[in-house]
Structures are given as structure tokens and as C-alpha cells.
Design a protein around this nucleic acid. Structure first.
Length: 457
RNA sequence: GGCUGGGUGGCAGAGUGGUCAUGCAGCGGUCUGCAACACCGUUUACGCCGGUUCGAUUCCGACCCCAGCCUCCA
């Protein structure tokens, strides 16, 4: 088996993965901001992270998986700052920010469960770690990386050598191309560590700090919480591609300034799902949820499989037709695997090829191609089944538990089926075909097999 | 506008300096009373223009288009 290789955004190359501590992997995944439901594009990223985790476990590592929940927003009491997500969400739903955070956190976790995504070992909420964040900012202040403006404490990105290396930022170009007035910020790439509550306003979420009442900036929660649960330098930090230039760049800046590390040994990013010509933007109001996919008659596992047909590091196009196409393939595979019966011995050649591909920077599309090779290969069914079940530890499609849909066939339908079979036996095919059409109109399909007619719903 | 990444057959999507991705769809066939299922076979590709090379979809350059970020979006 080829040793595991992963692409590291920081170094911009695929390199051998070696855990910092033998046998153990610390993995931090940027979680959701809980102001709305997750859309299927969000979920693609969590599917990528799930595959990453399963591949690490397949390689024998014990994974310590941490995911944050961003439940802090800029909450103001009036409509002026309509940009704020938590505020808008609270207004839209009629819930308090706290209620809304719980509501959408639960909905998010339910989606992950439906997709058979393994749960993190630690869920950490930003609001449960205010003290850690304040301590982190205090440390940065002591080390001289902060300055104060009228609305908050900011990180002085120019004090740091190599700010923006993760994203290969052209800092001077950013300065010239800035579309927003910097205000009291000294430089475009500076960002808030702590924001003050505006005078005279009561926020739903605000806390006491050495700098006054306010709330933490967005980036600080990940630096503070990952340090708490995984240490100052851990194995893998992952998230969506959109985080590369801002969020992860700033996390690295904070941690570099405070702890002297680049936070994680590997930085990994899942790429966007495209729907039609546009990306999925929650701000557009309309976005596609897993719920919608299920309501259209697909299983969550079909969406899981769909995502696995593309490499995590390429943008992928979603359409109902392409989901339908992968669904057809997956249902075929389920039925085939079911018909293979009880598992025998693992076919090591096939499993080896599969493992080589997953270890080659999670090349799941190639790994799945090996499965289709195996379908056609001259290997006995029991061994194919055993091999597939082993592969499914990574794929997570649930081949062991899949059963053909057995819908209760009503007695009147069964009667028609029997009448048709009699008509067939007496070679009255005209009558047989019209009875088949009748049964179809009632929502059941008849397939003639050697064992007689098979009725499916 | 700047920076970062990408453009592959009807669709989705791998990969490679010179023989195959794979799946779905299509087409032909086996099976079937006809179908369905299954199985066998099979067509179509590498954005555009140059360059390097014996040979480029693959390497290099320009151009066009798409995406991300510069607006606390996975």
C-alpha cells in the first residue's frame, strides 16, 4: 500500500503525511455559522472532511476530530447594519440569537447524520470559549501585535513577516484594490480581534473584557479553541476554499504571532459546488438543502456518492440530471452488492489498488473506478462482497445494511399480477400487457424472472 | 482592477509527454411473447493561438471564459 500523501495548501504541494505524534492525528475542521440551514454546497465540504478522516483511520491512525460552531455574530439592535448574519437570522426567524444558534446547530448535525458523516470527538461553540479568546487576545496585546480603534482591538498584520503566505496574497495589490474604506484600521489586511458594543446599545450576545463590553472577532475563536483541544501545532486544519485568503490566513497570523507556529502541519481545503452558473450563496435567500434533495426522492447516500465522484480539490457542477445519473449507478451497485450475498475473503489485489488511490491525496473517483473494475472482474461473489465492505469503511455508503425496497403490495394489485401471469401462461399477451399497464398505473412495476413475476413499488 | 485556482466526449468527472479512467445517457447485440433487469460490444474529448519536442490534452507563453478572495460565504 502506497503511503498516505496529502495536498497541503500552505506548501502548495502533495507531500507525505506523517503525524506529529506517532499513531495519532489531530484534525480541526471549521464548522458552520449557525444563522441558517446548511445548503448542499456546505455539506460537500463536510463530506470531504469525513472522507479525510476515514482515510486517516483506514491507515491506522487514531483521529482526534474537533469541529467548532460559530454562534457569535455582530448583533445590533436596529436595522442599520443589515450585513450581520446572526442579526438577520434572529429577525427572520423570530428567535433569539441563542435559540437560533441551537436550532440551526441541531439541524446541521441532523444533516451530517443523514449523510453518514462521522461525528467529531469535540464540538466547540465560540460562545463557550469567550475566556480563552480573551486570553489569546491579551497575549497578542502583550506581544505588541494589537492596536485599538474606536470600534475594537485590531491585529496589526504588518508586524508579522510573511503575512498571507497561505493564500500567496499580494499584500500591496490588496491595498491598492481595496473596495472598502479602511476606517480606523491601519491596513487592509488588519482585522478585528475584539469588537466593542456600540455605545447605548444592548446586544443579545456581549461579554465583559479588559477592553470593555463587546464580542470576539471571527478568526480568534478558531485559534483559541484549536489550541485548547489540539495544542499550538497540530496535524490538519481543514475547511472550504473560501477560507484560504481571509479566515485561515488570519488564524495563522494570530497563532504565529502568539505561539510561533503556523497552527497546522497540513492545511486542506474542499472546493465549491456550483449550481447552474452561480455558487450557492445563502444571502441570495434561495438555496438547496439536503431536505430538498430527499424530497425529490433521492437518498442522502446518493448525494454522498455524487460528491465522491469528483476530487475534493476541484469545483463540481451540480444538476438534477447529474445527481440522477450517479444515483442510478449507486442503486445498481447496492443491488449488485446485495446479490453478492455473505462476505468471503478480501481480494487483496483490488483492495490494494483502492488503497493506493485513496492514499494519493484522496483520489476517491479513481478508487470508485476500481470498484467498477471489481464488479466485472473474475472474482467470486463472496470475495467481492468482503472487499467492498472493507472499502466501504472509507466510502461510508452502507453496503452492509442496504436492502431492496420492499413495499407492501396490496392484495388487489397482487390479484392483477396473478391474472396477468395466467394470461401470459395462456399466451394472451394483449390482456397481459393491459394488466401490466393497470398495475403500473397503481404504482407498481412487474418484472418477469425465472422465479415468476417480481413486483416492485 | 489585483491576486489565487480552473477550462476534458451528450452530462458528471479522473488521468497522462506516445496503448484504457470510470459512471450515466446514446447506439448495436444476447436474453424476453414484448418489455424490464442483467450481460456483451461500441461512437464522441481534451477552450483558443503560438512555442519547446521525433511526438502535447499533458510542459511553456499570450488571449478568451469560469470560480474564489479583496464585502466576518463551505
Amino acid at each position: 500500500m502506497t503511503p498516505l500523501q496529502l495536498f497541503d495548501t500552505y506548501e502548495r504541494k502533495v507531500r507525505a503525511f506523517e503525524p506529529l505524534t506517532a499513531g495519532r492525528v489531530g484534525m480541526y475542521a471549521c464548522g458552520p455559522t449557525v444563522y441558517n440551514f446548511a445548503h448542499i454546497g456546505n455539506l460537500r465540504t463536510y463530506l470531504f472532511e469525513d472522507i479525510l478522516r476515514r482515510v486517516l483511520e483506514f491507515n491506522g491512525y487514531e483521529v482526534h476530530h474537533v469541529m467548532n460552531i460559530t454562534d457569535v455574530g455582530h448583533l445590533t439592535s436596529d436595522a442599520d447594519s443589515g450585513e450581520d448574519k446572526m442579526e438577520l437570522g434572529s429577525k427572520r426567524t423570530g428567535m433569539t440569537a441563542w435559540e437560533m444558534a441551537d436550532y440551526y446547530s441541531e439541524a446541521f448535525i441532523a444533516d451530517l447524520e443523514r449523510l453518514n458523516i462521522l461525528m467529531p470527538d469535540v464540538w466547540c461553540k465560540a460562545t463557550d470559549h469567550i475566556d480563552e479568546q480573551i486570553a489569546f487576545v491579551e497575549d497578542l496585546e502583550t506581544k505588541g501585535y494589537t492596536y485599538r480603534t474606536n470600534d475594537g482591538i485590531y491585529f496589526d498584520s504588518q508586524k508579522l513577516n510573511g503575512y498571507g503566505h497561505l493564500a500567496r496574497l499580494d499584500v500591496e495589490g490588496l491595498r491598492q484594490g481595496a473596495r472598502v474604506q479602511p476606517g480606523e484600521r491601519r491596513f487592509v489586511t488588519d482585522f478585528a480581534l475584539w469588537k466593542f458594543s456600540p455605545p447605548g446599545e444592548q446586544r443579545q450576545m456581549e461579554w465583559q473584557s479588559p477592553w470593555g463590553i463587546g464580542f470576539p472577532g471571527w478568526h480568534i475563536e478558531c485559534s483559541a479553541m484549536s489550541a485548547k483541544y489540539l495544542g499550538d501545532f497540530f496535524d490538519i486544519h481543514c475547511g472550504g476554499e473560501d477560507h484560504i485568503p481571509i479566515h485561515h490566513t488570519n488564524e495563522i497570523a494570530q497563532t504565529e504571532a502568539s505561539r510561533g507556529t503556523r497552527l497546522a502541519n497540513f492545511w486542506m481545503h474542499g472546493y465549491f459546488l456550483q449550481v447552474g452558473d452561480a455558487k450557492m450563496a445563502k444571502s441570495d435567500g434561495e438555496f438547496l438543502r439536503l431536505k430538498t434533495v430527499i424530497e425529490k426522492g433521492f437518498d442522502a447516500s446518493s448525494y454522498r456518492y455524487f460528491c465522491m465522484t469528483a476530487h475534493y480539490r476541484t469545483q463540481m457542477s451540480f444538476s438534477w440530471d447529474s445527481l440522477q445519473a450517479t444515483n442510478t449507478a449507486l442503486q445498481r451497485l447496492y443491488q449488485l452488492a446485495y446479490d453478492w450475498g455473505e462476505p468471503g475473503e478480501i481480494a487483496s489485489g483490488m483492495l490494494g489498488r483502492f488503497a493506493d488511490h485513496i492514499n494519493d491525496d484522496l483520489n476517491i473517483p479513481r478508487a470508485i473506478a476500481v470498484i467498477w473494475d471489481m464488479v466485472k472482474a473474475d472474482i467470486n461473489k463472496a470475495d467481492k462482497k468482503a472487499t467492498l465492505l472493507e472499502m466501504d469503511k472509507v466510502l461510508g455508503l452502507g453496503f452492509a445494511d442496504w436492502r431492496p425496497q420492499e413495499r407492501e403490495v396490496p392484495a388487489d394489485v397482487m390479484a392483477l399480477v396473478e391474472q396477468r401471469e395466467q394470461a401470459r401462461q395462456s399466451r394472451d399477451f394483449t390482456r397481459a400487457d393491459s394488466l401490466r399497464a393497470e398495475v403500473a398505473a397503481l404504482g407498481f412495476q412487474i418484472e418477469d424472472t425465472r422465479e415468476g413475476p417480481k413486483v416492485t413499488g
